[in-house]
């Protein structure tokens, strides 16, 4: 799912300067599930904005609403349409796709993001941590790498094995991070598939990852 991180509240307030009626829009998709931009987070943020306003002695109305998916034009139009006239700026708690969808649907209302969109990730709940798992490169090689993506999980996106920077199984860029290629090697070895990494992997075809992409469905 898409992982986001809340912007500093002061940066958000800076962007809200001069506006009187703010509509906070949460999203119950990825960001809701990860407790980063759901209904509760939208209300929390509204309360924080109210605190900021109190501290600066300003009178600004906040209203929070949450939709199931902000990356769906139809949903955004139907859910927000009836109440949109009552605000002069929208603060979206969704990922970049959600923010842009809202911006496209409501042409004459400014839309600003509450979050920085970071990556496609998976959750390790025990640690309360989200890990990047896929960079959406457009040509998946997980079939050859034991289901572990070196394009994402190796900082150098190597396709043919580890670089010389692997130290005690960890990456040269972060001593806490496992070397993706060591994980792949171990996995392939355990599953008797080591042969699949002995063939040279050709350079990636980045035409499949050239922005902006589209997909007919």
């Amino acid at each position: 799912m898409i992982v986001v991180e809340r912007k500093n509240i002061n940066d958000i307030l800076e962007n809200l300067k001069g506006f009187k009626k703010i509509l906070l829009v949460g999203c119950n998709g990825c960001v809701g599930i990860y407790q980063l931009g759901g209904e509760k987070q939208a209300i929390e943020l509204a309360m924080l904005i109210n605190m900021g306003n109190k501290l600066k002695d300003k009178k600004i109305d906040t209203k929070a609403i949450t939709v199931i998916r902000q990356c769906d034009k139809q949903i955004v139009k139907e859910e927000l349409g009836p109440i949109i006239t009552d605000c002069d700026i929208i603060l979206s708690l969704a990922c970049g796709a959600g923010v842009q969808t809202v911006a496209e649907v409501f042409e004459n209302i400014p839309v600003i993001p509450a979050n920085d969109t970071k990556f496609i990730g998976a959750q390790a709940r025990e640690k309360g941590t989200l890990f990047e798992m896929c960079i959406a490169c457009g040509n998946c090689i997980l079939d050859k790498t034991g289901g572990i993506c070196p394009v994402t999980r190796c900082p150098k996106s190597h396709l043919n094995g580890p670089c010389g920077g692997v130290y005690k199984g960890k990456c040269e860029t972060d001593k806490e991070r496992d070397c993706a290629w060591l994980l792949i090697y171990n996995k392939l070895k355990l599953s008797g598939k080591l042969e699949s990494m002995k063939k040279i992997a050709s350079p990636k075809d980045f035409t499949k990852a050239a922005h902006p992409r589209k997909q007919e469905v």
Partner: peptide, 16 residues
């Protein structure tokens, strides 16, 4: 505790 620590950060940022 986890929840409180997150709130503390937000409070600090806003100026409480």
């Amino acid at each position: 505790e986890k929840r409180i620590n997150k709130i503390k950060k937000q409070l600090g940022d806003i100026g409480v």
